[in-house]
């Protein structure tokens, strides 16, 4: 019998995220575990290697709070589009401290996670060639773990990408059963491969559902329960990011964040209000306000039901 894995957010982070860990923060814009990121900041985890394909405000806040020693990313930005100030301060001024950066394109980072998930020594690709990431062809100053070789099959030049693996990965999903059979839908970017490259997985879910709900739609399951360490019930856990079927992206929050974090002092005040001034997600949601949350709720847009077909007996009809 599988074991229930339900924990509070603070217990899940305390138990499974450690100083010095390599952490995959899941979600390609959507499914961003914002509530988990805030709890990691509150618990002041240190010297993290943070791996996030599409970095938005959650990454910027973790950098600004001084948790990140090494960032693996394809981009980190405020989608307004404008500067993610903490990310930029870390790289241009070493504020709050020096941060190493390991950059890829989105496809290249997907391939690195894929190699990590399958435990491959490397994957070969035709992207990145000739760019600043191609240290063999350019004098861009980039140092990375990529190799450039001739394909043994065609002789053409290829980029070899080594695997990326993580100690722990966190994702905000739409729903999960208490055992960690988590289901997500919408745009998934790198999520499926990246989660499988993690030793431990923390699932944060908008809703906890019965296993029966999962069993009736198994195509949507992210990772098998035996790969999941903890399940946290955390409604609105991705705000200000979006969650398909649950809430829109809080776009004006991006503009607000940009204005409120232009200096280190402003950023500190912002964090005092939104992170250190809140004990948990409930406190945070009170700050956002009920009216705003209500405005973010989308109209329902539902698929027609599908049938997977229930079979209980073998066909007993012989060919004549």
């Amino acid at each position: 019998m599988a074991q229930e894995k339900l924990l509070s957010m603070s217990d899940a982070i305390e138990r499974y995220v450690h100083d010095g860990d390599t952490l995959y923060l899941g979600g390609f814009i959507h499914h961003d575990p914002f509530a988990a990121a805030h709890e990691i900041i509150r618990q002041r985890k240190k010297n993290l290697t943070l791996s996030k394909c599409a970095g938005l405000l959650s990454v910027d806040q973790m950098i600004g709070a001084g948790l990140i020693k090494h960032l693996i990313t394809a981009f980190t930005w405020n989608p307004l589009p404008t500067t993610a100030h903490c990310f930029v301060r870390a790289l241009t001024k070493e504020v709050p401290h020096r941060m190493e950066i390991e950059e890829y394109s989105i496809l290249a980072l997907n391939l690195a996670y894929f190699a990590g998930a399958l435990n491959l020594p490397y994957v070969a690709t035709k992207t990145l060639l000739g760019s600043g990431f191609d240290w063999e062809q350019t004098d861009s100053g980039v140092k990375n773990r990529l190799r450039f070789e001739k394909s043994p099959f065609t002789g053409e030049r290829v980029c070899l990408i080594p695997p990326i693996k993580h100690d722990v990965g966190i994702i905000q999903a739409q729903r999960s059963d208490p055992y960690g059979n988590a289901q997500a839908w919408g745009m998934l970017g790198e999520v499926q491969y990246a989660l499988q490259s993690c030793e431990k997985v923390i699932i944060c879910a908008e809703e906890i559902v019965d296993t029966d709900v999962v069993m009736r739609d198994p195509n949507r399951t992210l990772v098998p329960t035996f790969r999941v360490s903890a399940v946290v019930e955390e409604p609105w856990g991705s705000h200000p990011g979006p969650m398909a079927g649950y809430y829109d992206m809080d776009w004006p929050y991006n503009a607000y964040y940009e204005k409120e974090t232009r200096t280190e002092e402003l950023f500190e005040n912002f964090m005092k209000k939104w992170v250190f001034g809140t004990r948990d997600r409930k406190d945070y949601l009170n700050l956002v306000g009920e009216e705003r949350l209500k405005a973010l709720r989308p109209e329902r847009y539902e698929p027609d039901p599908v049938s997977y077909g229930k079979l209980t007996r073998h066909l007993g009809v012989p060919y004549a």
């Binding site: 599409a54 990313t73 394809a74 981009f75 980190t76 930005w77 589009p81 993610a84 990310f87 930029v88 790289l91 241009t92 950059e103 890829y104 394109s105 989105i106 496809l107 290249a108 035709k126 992207t127 990145l128 060639l129 000739g130 760019s131 600043g132 990431f133 861009s140 100053g141 980039v142």
Partner: peptide, 27 residues
């Protein structure tokens, strides 16, 4: 260029990075 102005190791100005752009332009 959507990465930086100045030397990569100590940039004067920093932008968000590639995203999928490098893949588009490469392929």
């Amino acid at each position: 260029n959507t990465t930086c102005i100045g030397d990569y190791r100590s940039p004067k100005i920093r932008f968000g990075g590639s995203g999928g752009a490098c893949d588009f332009g490469s392929l």
